[in-house]
Structures are given as C-alpha cells and as structure tokens.
Amino acid sequence: MSQNRSSLLALIDNAERSGKADSALPFYATPASEIAAFASQHALDISFVYLVMTFATGDTAVWRRMIEALPEDADTRLVTVRWISWLWDDPEIGFRARIQDSVMRANGDAICALHHRAIRGEPVARSAWRQARAKLLPSGDSDAVEAAAAEGIAAAAWDLDRSPGVATDMIYPWKAILFAEIGRDLEWDTSKQKAADERRNHMVAAARAHAEAAVEKARKLGELSSEQLENVATSPLYQNAYNQGANDFLTQFPSELDRYGDRTRVAVADLYRQGREGLLQQIESLSAAPVSTAT
C-alpha cells in the first residue's frame, strides 16, 4: 500500500476514533485552499476530493470505502471525468435521458468529450468551455425537467484544472430534476405550494408552543441551570419537545399537502446514495479494465 494511502487511512481512523470527521477531513465548508493542500498531501486530484467529501457528508465509513477501493497510483482525475460521464449517460439516473431534443443531447455529449480530451492532455481553450455552456442554455419552451437536465451537464462544463469543484455543482440541477419530476407526478402547482407553506407555518408554531411549554414546566420545577436557560433553544429538552410537537401536529392533522415534501426528502437521500454508489463504481472501474479515456 502506498504511503499516501496509508497516511490517509490513518487520518480516517483518527477521525473515526475522535468522532470529529469535519476537523480532520475536508467537508463542504472547508476553504478551497485547504482542500487543495489536502489533495496535494495525499496525491489525490482536487476534483476527486470534492466528490468524495460531498458524498461522504462527514461519514468516515464512506471515506474509508472510497480510499480503500482506489487502486495503487490511481488517476483520480479520471474518476471525476468518468463520474461526470456516468451522471450524464446512465440510462436510469443520467441527465441525458431526460432531454428529448437531439441537438441538446449532442451538446451535452460534447461536454463529456471535452473532459476526455483534456484528460488525454489535449489543450481545450477556455472559450471552448464557455461556448459549450452557452449551447446548453434552455430555450423558452423547455420543460422544467429538460431545462434542469441541460443545466446539469452545463454545470460541469469548466476546466477541471481551473475549477475543480464543478462535478459537485451537478448536484444542484440533479435535485432540480428530481423535484420537477415529483411536482409533475403530483400535479404540484403554486397554490398547492402556498397551502403547504401555510401548513408548515402552523406546524412550526405548534412545535414551538410545545417546546416552550416544556421549557416553562422544567423551569418551574428548577430542572434547568442558568446556563441551560441562556441557550434554551439549542438544549436537548427544547429540541426533543419541538420534534414531539411537530410529530403530534402531523399525526393529528394528516394532509396530502405533505406528499411533495415527503417525496423530495426521500429523493435527496436517494440522490446522495446513488451519487456515492456511482462514484464507487468509477473508482472500481479503474482496476477492472485498462485505463481508457476514449469517449
């Protein structure tokens, strides 16, 4: 095992033992300069570090799984490029299948081709990336799913040397695709959303009232220290009572208006699971077949 990988696995071990993954491993709020230093220290491509930290979401077990799966001297930039292509091309998950317009599809294909050219060491001018993005601007008659899918591949149309975080940018439009599809299934419109927002406000008010009543009861019984009273909103007592109040409201007043929120929450969890699995597939593909950069 290479020294770089051993030291990284040791770092993951320490993070696991200390329970402080975010202080040992990069996460979404880590400054870009520190992410670059971490990547350099462990001989990983910066774009790959962005992907792993995004899908690990602070879970050291995911970090370990990704790093242990890396072949010796793996080209981790190639993993990123293959992940971008996978998210574009995959027949079930991919953005490409969501676009009906053949020209737009070809424009998306061209972005993957640019990444493959770049990884072969061929020069790709900054203007080529810019033109590629411009070709994917949605037209006025694109539906929400198609527009988000086009934005999804356009999000990746930047030089990975200059902009190593762009693969993770694809997650924002990926969420937009899923939300638009759920909205279409449920025939969700602005009036339903307004009603759902109002219902949420009622739920929050009920949950707050429940939490404040629990705090008041504890205060009268002398169960809260002065320190706890100062930070009462973040105390376990308040938080647990708030969650209980919210659950009571949802049980007492069930509504179809919760369906959109329920489904989008599940969709986001699925997105992160699929993104993680897709990334692992690309890592494993490095050892399964000779490295190919052909498109």
């Binding site: 810019r130 934005e151 356009a154 990746a156 149309a157 930047w158 762009v166 940018d169 694809m170 439009p173």
Partner: peptide, 13 residues
C-alpha cells in the same frame, strides 16, 4: 441560495 457556477455565470454573461 447555493447554485452551480454555470447558472450564475449564465446570468452574468
């Protein structure tokens, strides 16, 4: 809120 750099770049462009 958060968004892709391409979306922000398209608006600026």
């Amino acid at each position: 809120g958060s968004m892709s750099r391409s979306k922000l770049a398209a608006a600026l462009e």
